[in-house]
């Protein structure tokens, strides 16, 4: 098995395991609490509005915004790590059909694995910090995924002739 294929296959399964482990941890220790927090802050905002307390209402809505922002990203991280892991595994299986040099294929596989690891990691980092670094990691990771995927698609397209088989 070529190195590119190994990176995609082992990397894909490792990402799926990482996504599942994270999902399991999140479901057991964080999700219910997060959902309760979202519901309580939203309910608190409208209860405060009913009591004509605009400041308390606004404060609760800000808590809702923060909790919802984190919850959406935490769920997305779980889904994207597993989804990208599965894509890596599928591509590994068909990697022999990519008509590029082994060096290029190894480079594309490494870039795709790194992108698939970093893109959700950057999204997860956004729940801890709203600064530029998490966004840069997420954008860089997604760019790596897109570019390497485009390269692999090109490789598949070059291998259309039945004579190759």
């Amino acid at each position: 098995m070529t190195s590119g294929k190994k990176i995609l296959l082992l990397g894909g399964i490792a990402l799926a395991v990482l996504g599942m482990t994270y999902g399991l941890w999140y479901a057991v220790f964080a999700e219910h609490q997060a959902l309760d927090g979202i519901g309580a802050s939203l309910s608190g905002a409208f209860s405060a509005a009913a009591n004509r307390d605009a400041a308390a209402s606004e404060k609760s809505l800000l808590q809702y915004r923060e909790a919802k922002y984190a919850y959406d990203r935490q769920v997305d991280v779980h889904g994207h790590w597993i989804g990208l892991g599965m894509l890596l595994m599928v591509l590994a299986i068909g990697f022999d059909r990519v008509a590029l040099s082994e060096k290029s294929k190894g480079f594309l596989a490494t870039a795709l694995f790194l992108g698939a690891l970093l893109f959700p990691l950057g999204v997860l980092m956004q729940t801890a910090s709203h600064g530029a670094l998490p966004k840069a990691v997420a954008i860089g990771g997604s760019a790596l995924v897109m570019i390497s995927l485009a390269g692999i698609t090109l490789g598949f397209a070059l291998n259309q002739a039945p004579a190759d088989e």
Binding site: L35, G39, L42, S43, F46, S47, A49, A50, N51, R52
Partner: peptide, 26 residues
């Protein structure tokens, strides 16, 4: 219903309606 309960100044009805919203979302 929760928004209209807030409009009417009925804080307990707000809670009841958000409880229902939570159940529907779950």
């Amino acid at each position: 219903a929760a928004a209209n309960a807030a409009l009417a100044g009925d804080a307990s009805a707000v809670g009841v309606n958000f409880q229902k919203t939570g159940e529907f979302l779950e």
